[in-house]
Design a protein around this nucleic acid. Structure first.
Lengths: 164, 164
DNA sequence: TGGAGTTATTTTGATTGGCGAAGCAACAAG
DNA sequence: CTTGTTGCTTCGCCAATCAAAATAACTCCA
């Protein structure tokens, strides 16, 4: 059986792996460019996106334990990237916010992955963009949606409220 | 500016992140199912794919240093998953091969990500599959191809020899 | 032959990310 | 006020990673 079924599946998996690999490598690039580790950078981004979060929120979003988040925040705080303040409404909680320095770091750290991708994506024809989005969302759905706990995490996706 | 340009880019990035996240989580699942860490599993897979490799080859393929690979192979070897033998032709090199146990482990470790994905992918209409592949490859190209060192890594992709 | 330089691997000594369990403080419900 | 729950931190541990140094083997040139 020549170019049918299985081969196509392979092709799609290969493309997927390429995507995964590219993003992984760029993550490292990014990290060192910003003077933060990939994970630290990600935390900083999440905090910035939210404006204000809690360790708990981050741990759920990132799928790691709270202890891990604490450690990461320790480092970010030591570097002056985020601030930690006890919440007034519920004093068990800590409010995490980005500092000015953190914001600058984010602003000055060009995310090579996104920048390159964004540039190219925006150069595409309208219908191509639409097509790509449809495909990516479809793949994403095949990977996570059903059959899974529907994820504690979607966050970004939820903000945008995808259909399905 | 309503639903144009930027929003689309966002949508595509969100889908991308969803894909990334799903694979990351499944990696962990997989790992524990197989009794190996995600990275160890990946190494084992790579070795199996190649049939015979060297630490150097693996380090390039994975984008990590050789020291790291050595450590990983130590563990896999201790668990009887791979064998290390000095190469006859160049005795600086070590030949890494999967053992029977390693092969079994791979066979019995259901890759939930791939399985789920594969099942769904194969259920798609022909034209849908083609469309998805085209889109994924396009995205992959936008992420890695040009502008980058053309990557030391493609490996799987090279086996299949994609065009472009 | 015999260096000099290069390449493949391992070793060593860090750091980071991650987990689980234990501990502590604050809230919630009786 | 007790009991249970929740949010966070601490602690001890392990895996993954790196950079740099040490070894060993190869290559090449004179």
């Amino acid at each position: 059986m020549g170019l049918t079924g299985m081969d196509r599946t392979d092709d799609s998996l290969i493309a997927l792996r390429r995507i995964l690999r590219a993003t992984e490598l760029f993550g490292k690039e990014l990290a060192s460019a910003a003077g933060l580790s990939p994970v630290q950078f990600r935390v900083l981004q999440l905090v910035a996106e939210k404006g204000l979060t809690t360790p708990k929120g981050l741990s759920v979003q990132m799928g790691v334990t709270q202890g891990t988040v604490t450690a990461l925040l320790d480092k970010l705080q030591r570097q002056g990237m985020v601030s930690r303040e006890r919440s007034e409404v519920d004093r068990r909680q800590m409010n995490i916010a980005v500092t000015e320095k953190g914001r600058e770091t984010l602003a000055n750290a060009p995310d090579p992955l996104q920048q390159r991708y964004v540039r190219k994506f925006e150069a595409l024809e309208d219908w191509e963009q639409a097509q790509l989005i449809a495909s990516l969302e479809r793949v994403a759905a095949m990977l996570d949606a059903d059959e899974m706990d529907a994820s504690p995490v979607l966050d970004v996706g939820e903000l945008k409220g995808r259909p399905a």
